[in-house]
Design a protein around this nucleic acid. Structure first.
Lengths: 158, 158
DNA sequence: TATTGTTATACTCTATAACTATA
DNA sequence: TATAGTTATAGAGTATAACAATA
């Protein structure tokens, strides 16, 4: 930290400072900046939900099942852009916790109708409380006005 | 796709339509929407750079080394938020391709001074051309105006 | 033939810990 | 003691392919 010091004209000789690193062309890539904020938010979410052992993808699946009870795995997967192989394992885990049930579809013997169990509803209630606290922290970090603008600009891609 | 049909009042009886899935509370989480667009952009980037076998993280490291020749691994890692263990392996791979060199630092025997090789400069030139085409596609997908607004709102977090 | 869901494999990325050599 | 870099391991996410059952 003290090597390769850069002396700026007016700076104290003893105060050795590193030149800040430039981003180069990275500065013109939207994906880079999206990624940086997304990672910060997901890390905060994971920390906030750690006690419940719920990851972002699991949370999103629980919410979409609650909002659309009885729908099939393929429908959920299409909505959230989760690959069916991955969703199968994710749901297997949620079923082991007794948070969801896969019922017979009735219309199509190939597909399952996904629903939350009573346990799942209860757990999701607690999870939502933690997620709301997390989202409040996001608002502080990003700024309420900027958060609202980002939501408006990004909503079309969800 | 034809089961669990929902008949809307004025719709043709034969045209069976699925009700679109609701997002539930997910609709109020900035992280979800950020993630959806970020994933789209990264998938497009990976496809665009497939022939060069360059992943987003590798690209970002190459650009930052070029913009800041001679800096240490820890400096690069801090700037891009890449963990030092992961960066060590990433650089090992770039070194195998002869795109970068780790020189002795001169000031601190523990650290390496990272620089691009002539091969690396050449490769990066071609890579940048592909990345620019990709970024143009991002502009089309997102909309030029929206892209500019997002850049402005997100730049602080990069 | 196409779709739903399952299992399996491989690769990337992330998170840790343990280790060395230097500071 | 702390930092720079390396190696190893485990977990999550992603991308495939192959398969059985059903449409």
């Amino acid at each position: 930290m003290t090597t390769q010091a850069v002396r700026t004209k007016g700076a104290e000789p003893d105060l050795q400072m590193e030149a800040p690193l430039q981003l180069g062309e990275l500065d013109h890539h939207l994906g880079y900046f999206l990624r940086r904020l997304q990672v910060w938010i997901f890390q905060d979410f994971i920390a906030a939900l750690k006690e419940k052992h719920v990851r972002p993808a699991q949370y999103s699946v629980l919410l979409v099942i609650k909002a659309n009870p009885g729908r099939s795995q393929s429908a959920i997967g299409r909505r959230l852009n989760i690959e069916r192989a991955r969703l199968a394992r994710l749901l297997h885990d949620l079923e082991k916790r007794k948070w969801i049930r896969r019922r017979a579809s009735g219309c199509d013997a190939r597909s399952h109708a996904l629903v939350l169990t009573a346990d799942g509803e209860r757990a999701l209630g607690q999870i939502k409380t933690l997620a709301a606290k997390h989202e409040a922290k996001v608002g502080e970090y990003v700024g309420q006005k900027r958060r609202a603008e980002l939501m408006r600009l990004l909503r079309d891609f969800g």
